[in-house]
């Protein structure tokens, strides 16, 4: 089956930052949450795929089409909402969308009006008079109006009020339900994708440390406290270990395995606590390679 996108050994170098070598792909019908702190390489990764940045080496494909800048067919499959929303500023939202519609055979004006209504977007206003949130909404409408098979969203809900944010996430959920489309969603705010994402990829310093199904994280990761007189232990499958006297607190990446090990060591009063996706993400990004190899 064709991948929605593929990065093969992609490298992009800046004077003070290097992305990759990056290997990443996505199946149609799924959503990959791309998580990392500011400056970790999320935006750079997406900008390479849409052609705003030229990779130094490696290959990228979108639904089997190589991302050759002089053969732009692959761009027809992409809807992109970037970190900066760019329009003809003196034109209204509607006129900007009319302009874009000329480039996409699948463009639907019905879809435009349906989305504008759902997002409460004033299409008659000039782009330069739109608020930050409304600019993001206009960008989302532009990205969705030609029904692309791959949506690349770079923190798309930043600046949007909570009501519309829920509406945006509902629209994305509907897109995923069709089963043919894929969403690559970059964010450093986890709650907004924890509902939708099938998998999460964690990036920091230009490298992906971990890619895992979301359920694996919530089911396997636990904060565990226990009592043990010994201080020289190294519990298995943990990314953090704090001790105060006989009281220990660890974060386990594989709860069952760690618990079994703790029992073997003779730990007492073992208590396990569920962790939120945000707590897990913080640990992963703090742990870097340690987490990836645990």
């Amino acid at each position: 089956m064709e991948k929605a996108f593929q990065y093969k050994n992609v490298i992009k170098t800046f004077p003070e930052f290097k992305l990759g070598p990056l290997n990443l792909d996505l199946e149609p019908g799924t959503m990959l949450g791309f998580v990392g702190p500011n400056g970790s390489g999320k935006t750079t990764t997406m900008q390479c795929l849409v052609g705003l940045l030229r990779a130094d080496s490696g290959e990228m494909e979108v639904f089997g089409n190589p991302s050759n800048l002089n053969k732009p067919a692959w761009k027809l499959d992409i809807g992109y909402v970037g970190d900066i929303q760019v329009f003809y500023e003196r034109w209204t939202g509607q006129k900007n969308l009319d302009f874009l519609s000329q480039f996409y055979p699948n463009w639907s004006n019905e879809r435009v009006h349906e989305l504008a209504k759902r997002f409460n977007l004033p299409l008659h206003k000039r782009a330069k008079d739109l608020s930050t949130g409304n600019r993001v909404k206009l960008s989302l409408v532009a990205a969705l109006a030609h029904s692309p098979r791959l949506l690349l969203l770079d923190e798309p809900t930043s600046g949007i009020d909570p009501v519309v944010r829920i509406e945006v996430l509902d629209v994305l959920f509907e897109i995923l339900e069709s089963g043919e489309r894929a969403i690559f969603y970059a964010t450093h705010i986890l709650p907004e994708i924890s509902r939708l994402a099938d998998e999460l990829a964690f990036i920091d310093n230009g490298n992906i440390w971990l890619r895992t199904p979301k359920e694996d994280l919530t089911e396997k990761w636990r904060k565990i406290t226990f009592l043990l007189a010994r201080n020289d232990i190294e519990p298995k499958s943990t990314v953090s270990h704090q001790r105060e006297g006989h009281q220990h607190q660890i974060i386990s990446t594989d709860c069952e395995f760690t618990l079994e090990h703790l029992r073997e060591l003779g730990a007492e009063n073992i208590q396990e606590n569920h962790m939120t996706i945000e707590e897990i993400a913080v640990q992963i990004l703090k742990g870097g390679t340690n987490v990836a190899t645990t």
Partner: peptide, 20 residues
Amino acid sequence: TEEIKTKRIRLSVQLPISIR
């Protein structure tokens, strides 16, 4: 000046037309 100020090159590069 306006193209640089509004970074409009990003818009045209994202369109499905070749870089040439």
